[in-house]
Write a protein that binds this DNA or RNA. Structure first.
Lengths: 330, 330
DNA sequence: GTATTTATTGAGAACGTTCCCAAAAAGCTG
DNA sequence: CAGCTTTTTGGGAACGTTCTCAATAAATAC
């Protein structure tokens, strides 16, 4: 590999001058700059990233921690982050914690040891331990759909209240009045609380009484949706379900099919987040924020901090713009 | 951060000796080793990866190129690779080429510039350009489900013939005799050829004549499956489809539902690869190799090469062990 | 007891950059 | 043209490792 030293020898200038040209420092004569640039071109010089990182003390790599990359929610957001990073010549290492707090802590420590230049922890659960762990880290951090109690950090959010409100409203538009709700575990994340409130508000705004017995608390996974489905289908008054998330909605769908119910035809199922690409036109009703856009924004925030921006802490909320209801098309 | 220099000062030995202890070089007195290790423990020393990479000339990071990380085929394999790497303190950067050869070339060059220590190119298409590009790279490369014409490299394969053979046989077990097939573009990859041969062999072995008019060539995506579905459902003799891949199978399913056909109940759909986790018990018949295992094996191969193994080039084929047919359970 | 080997340690270069500071060259002021 | 500032350049340290080679200490051989 060609080094600065060789460029210096070939061009007749010193290492320092060549370095200045490379980092386009303005303290260099226009003539010299041209000559050096010509040599760079000629020798096909590429800077040694490791050597550069040796000086700066960090690699142009950021760590993204996700619960499970096979979950579309994380996958899409990561795609958004990476598109943004690649453009700016940064890279990302993605780690799956499989929703294990200890693993997440391990990854965060690793990011420090590996001298990554930033972290986007899309960590699974709220935890004081995790907050402490993030406190020890000295590189920039940007949060997605999460706030920390103590540390004020840049954060990007989807509008979960709105998403659930819209999804539920679509059910009402389709003529449903007896709509069950499957909530998430409210203690863990504010997302679940917001979505449930969206459901409640949608009913109220359409003069439908909220029946607490129609609200079931699930565990966010498909199995949980399946089990709750069994209860829901016993109550023949219910003609539709609004679910906190897609996986539980899918569970209800599976359950309904197993029981021979007219799911996705007469019996509608909605959820307050976008669905995986493969399910996009499969009949589920959904509303959610643009995950790729959220990821991209988070990456932008992070890069600003990496470049030592002193702007006050920012927080952005993305509206729920991805809406789908097959019965209301055309 | 604690450095070797500080360890040296504190322990009373030289940088060199401390370095030897860290890399457990045997040329060091047992007493000294213990003392130094105690200091390392006490000061919570962590080696500086960048400085180390400066010497070795490469980062402990490998590049994985995939067509699209949102495709379960890639996602699962990547999970397998990463599990293996993380254990050995290596990291992975994953890039989505979105099936664009130019992007893939760009990524390969980048891996070289960034001095990554290995590449697993799960590249989309066969291409001479790409082969040339890989030729220029000097770090170890391991292939998955692909062979290069010129360069003999370690490679890991799924058994595609077998997978398609099994999937088709399951359809026959379910009582079907008039089974259409959706092939992939045969010019691009040997995978498509193998799977088609699996279909043909399954029919022959069960004394069913292969009717060439029942074989449709698709483009691997859902839309393509949907379009072919239209043709298939016109022919009322056909009672089942065996598809090259899952996405086209899903397309047929969508088409069938739109046309009001009894898909996944009377009309069976099978494919010669595993399906995304969310579709695992949705009614599709499938057979395929364990993608995580394939990924893990590829990572092992790669790490052997990184550690300068001089073993002859290896090639492993994973049998199609993941089989699902809802009608043949119990 | 001297010579030779072996085990253990240390000094210092090297990796390819960036950064600080000083030197040289050029331009300006009076 | 002396004295000043500004522009442009170069020398060399620094980053934290590993690696080579030499030096010392200990052990063995004769």
């Amino acid at each position: 590999m060609v080094t600065i030293k060789e460029l210096a020898a070939k061009s007749g200038f010193s290492k320092s001058t060549v370095s200045r040209v490379i980092n386009n420092d303005h303290n260099v004569n226009e003539q010299t700059r041209k000559k050096v640039l010509a040599v760079i071109e000629e020798m096909d010089y590429k800077p040694n990233i490791i050597a550069r990182s040796m000086i700066t003390g960090s690699l142009p790599i950021i760590l993204i921690i996700v619960g499970d990359i096979q979950n579309h929610y994380f996958a899409r957001t990561v795609v958004g982050i990476e598109k943004e990073l690649t453009e700016k010549n940064y890279m990302a290492v993605v780690y799956n914690s499989m929703y294990d707090v200890d693993k997440e802590k391990k990854f965060i420590r690793m990011a420090k040891e590996c001298q990554f230049c930033g972290i986007i922890p899309m960590t699974a659960v709220k935890s004081d331990e995790l907050e402490e762990c993030l406190d020890e880290v000295n590189c920039p951090i940007v949060l997605i759909n999460r706030d920390l109690r103590k540390k004020p950090l840049d954060a990007v959010f989807g509008n979960d209240f709105e998403a659930s409100y819209i999804a539920t409203t679509e059910l009402i538009k389709n003529g449903h009045t007896c709509i069950a709700y499957i909530s998430g575990p409210s203690k863990i994340s504010s997302v679940s609380v917001d979505r449930e409130n969206g459901y409640r508000a949608a009913l109220k705004d359409h003069d439908i009484r909220v029946d607490e017995s129609l609200i079931y608390e699930g565990k966010l996974d498909m199995k949980s949706g399946y089990e709750i489905g069994k209860k829901i289908f016993k109550n023949t008054k219910i003609t539709a379900v609004s679910s906190n998330n897609f996986l539980m909605a899918l569970g209800v769908h599976r359950c309904g099919k197993a029981l021979g119910k007219p799911v996705l035809t007469e019996f509608d199922i909605a959820c307050g987040e976008t669905v995986p690409e493969l399910y996009e036109e499969s009949g589920f009703i959904y509303a959610g924020s643009d995950l790729e856009a959220i990821g991209a924004k988070a990456a932008q925030f992070l890069m600003k901090r990496i470049n030592k921006s002193k702007e006050p802490r920012q927080k952005i909320i993305f509206s729920a713009t991805k809406i789908y209801n097959p019965k209301q098309i055309k």
